[in-house]
């Protein structure tokens, strides 16, 4: 269909919406978030307002994609489309509260599995770690943050199965994916962060 040239313009809008919906879903599972966002947004925007149930189906995939890219759905949107199952997940990710995230996923497990997005939502843990660590860095207020401080934060959110090696691994992944600007000092047991903008906004990272 991508190679159909000008013929694409002749297609019915309903078919274009359907095509973009499936293209977006596939892109999401292929971890091509930018294509997923573009396709699903197109489908959502061009799906007639009276087709509430179809728009809702599109949103079920669009919401996780948007969240990964740092755009959180408003509670008004979730409520309008009867997607209140997402409320708690969104709140937890915004707070950096892993305990709340795990509880939110467990509470709505059946719905998320039925929708095929449970594993996708589980990956939001990474973003949640980033926001939790950002809060720790703000509280501690120095460029050199002892790894112990992060361990304390993890205990607060009920994560007790992460040892120092695993913590360093999580942080290293966050640095590699540009979610933290800084480096690990293994010898000193510290994370050294950039003096400015050490935790860039997620929507800023994905835009570049």
């Amino acid at each position: 269909i991508d190679n159909s040239g000008t013929l694409y313009n002749e297609f019915l809008m309903a078919d274009k919406v359907a095509y973009n919906y499936f293209l977006g879903r596939k892109a999401m599972f292929d971890a091509d978030l930018n294509l997923a966002e573009k396709s699903l947004l197109y489908a959502f925007r061009n799906c007639p307002a009276e087709s509430m149930s179809n728009k809702r189906k599109i949103l079920i995939y669009l919401i996780p994609v948007k969240m990964f890219l740092g755009h959180m759905p408003t509670f008004a949107l979730l409520h309008e489309y009867r997607l209140d199952e997402f409320q708690e997940v969104v709140a937890a990710v915004k707070e950096g509260n892993l305990a709340q995230l795990d509880a939110a996923l467990a509470n709505n497990e059946a719905f998320f599995i039925k929708s095929g997005i449970f594993l996708m939502l589980e990956k939001l843990r990474m973003i949640t770690f980033r926001t939790l660590f950002k809060k720790v860095s703000t509280i501690v207020g120095t460029a050199q943050i002892p790894l112990d401080a992060f361990q304390t934060a993890l205990r607060v959110v009920g994560v007790t199965d992460v040892d120092t090696d695993e913590l360093e691994c999580i942080i290293a992944n966050l640095i590699a994916s540009k979610k933290i600007k800084g480096y690990l000092s293994h010898g000193h047991g510290k994370l050294v962060i950039a003096k400015t903008n050490a935790f860039p906004t997620l929507s800023g990272i994905s835009a570049t």
Partner: peptide, 16 residues
């Protein structure tokens, strides 16, 4: 955030 701050203080971490 407040709870996090309290726990970090309790564990003897520097608080800005």
């Amino acid at each position: 955030s407040k709870q996090l701050k309290e726990e970090l203080a309790k564990s003897g971490h520097q608080i800005a």
